[in-house]
């Protein structure tokens, strides 16, 4: 039989009412473990930071050689010593926005279908596998697909858009007459529009899986409350799932945008490089930072090289900013707090 144990709360009369030191300190094993883990963490930070520092350091010789016109010059003509990133920054953002405009509705509706409407576990699992597979396809394959298969199909679409919606500046194609009987397909080739569509294919799986994750976390109690009031399924989704998932929707989209900004090989295979700032997305010719770097790297002189690296630094900063904003959005929302990205 165990002896009866009693719990005694003792208060020594002579001690002062101050908090006690109850932390015994770390053992040696704990200390070693902690410092090794911290070291690895710091190392990762240092590694990423050093990439940024290295790239940023290239700004110094670049600006020294080309001056601040580096930021405003659109053309990239190293032979004439006229080098600037204005056009490629705009091009990068334009392609990313087109990609998002195409990808966002597709990703959102796919995520909603998978998490809310899919009839049965098997269908759901298959769809999830297929969408995730989209993310596994290498970018160069998408580029080839875009250049060889998609492009000829989109040209008539581009023409239709410029014919019927040409009054919107984006869709205006001034270098050719879309109404002419023999319209010139080559004027619609290699445009930002087509590049945007191909990049969208790479953004969709990423955004879709984030959104799917948050929709699955929408609380059952609120769903049942909506149904108990006589709601239809769509009413319930509108009132419970979508507001709950707002952080994930926005965050997932922005993560996708981060990917779109840096997409290189697919864009490279599609566009006709043309470093001008143009609003018209349907016409041939555009350039993005990553495509520029990839395209010019081979034959770069030392000045051009530092300029390319400086352009890379600008891309690095843009992507960092977008991903940080995305993380903030996701972290501050109800859904994001529970989701691990």
């Amino acid at each position: 039989m165990r002896p009866a144990m009693s719990l005694l709360l003792e208060s020594r009369p002579e001690s002062v009412d101050q908090p006690r030191q109850i932390d015994p300190g770390l053992t040696t094993e704990d200390r070693i473990f902690r410092s090794s883990v911290s070291a690895v963490g710091v190392f990762v930070l240092v590694l990423t930071g050093s990439i940024g520092v290295f790239l940023g350091y290239q700004l110094i010789p670049t600006l020294g050689h080309y001056g601040f016109r580096f930021f405003t010059e659109t053309r990239w003509l190293p032979e004439q010593d006229k080098v600037g990133i204005a056009a490629v920054v705009v091009g990068t953002i334009v392609v990313a926005i087109i990609a998002l405009t195409v990808a966002f509705p597709l990703a959102l509706l796919t995520a909603l279908f998978i998490s809310e409407y899919a009839p049965g576990q098997k269908v759901k699992a298959t769809l999830v596998a297929v969408v995730d597979l989209m993310a596994a396809v290498p970018s160069i394959i998408y580029g080839l697909w875009g250049a060889a298969l998609l492009q000829p199909q989109v040209q008539p679409l581009s023409r239709w858009l410029s014919q019927n919606l040409g009054w919107i500046p984006f869709f205006k194609v001034s270098s050719t007459n879309p109404d002419a009987a023999a319209w010139e397909p080559t004027k619609y080739v290699g445009s930002a529009f087509i590049a945007g569509i191909v990049v969208a294919m790479m953004v969709i799986p990423l955004a879709c899986s984030v959104m799917r994750g948050v929709f699955a976390l929408a609380p059952l109690g609120e769903r049942e409350a909506a149904y108990a009031l006589g709601s239809t399924r769509w009413g319930m989704i509108r009132t419970v799932v979508l507001p709950f998932g707002r952080g994930g929707i926005i965050g997932g989209t922005m993560l996708g945008m981060g990917r779109a900004l840096g997409e290189t090989i697919a864009v490279l295979l599609i566009i006709s490089p043309d470093t001008v700032i143009k609003l018209s997305i349907l016409t041939t010719g555009t350039d993005t930072i990553s495509a520029l770097i990839a395209g010019r790297f081979g034959e770069a002189t030392s000045h051009q090289l530092t300029a390319l690296l400086a352009a890379g630094f600008v891309l690095f900063l843009i992507t960092l900013a977008v991903n940080t904003v995305a993380a903030i959005f996701i972290g501050r929302s109800r859904s994001g707090a529970a989701l691990e990205i």
């Binding site: 409350a225 909506a226 009031l229 006589g230 239809t232 009413g235 319930m236 709950f244």
Partner: peptide, 25 residues
Amino acid sequence: MVFQKPNPFPAMSIEDNVAAGLRLT
């Protein structure tokens, strides 16, 4: 139906919560 654990819609105001039944149907 009223459930064991109160489940008001947190994204909506009190007024909208009460009127939610109308919106949903």
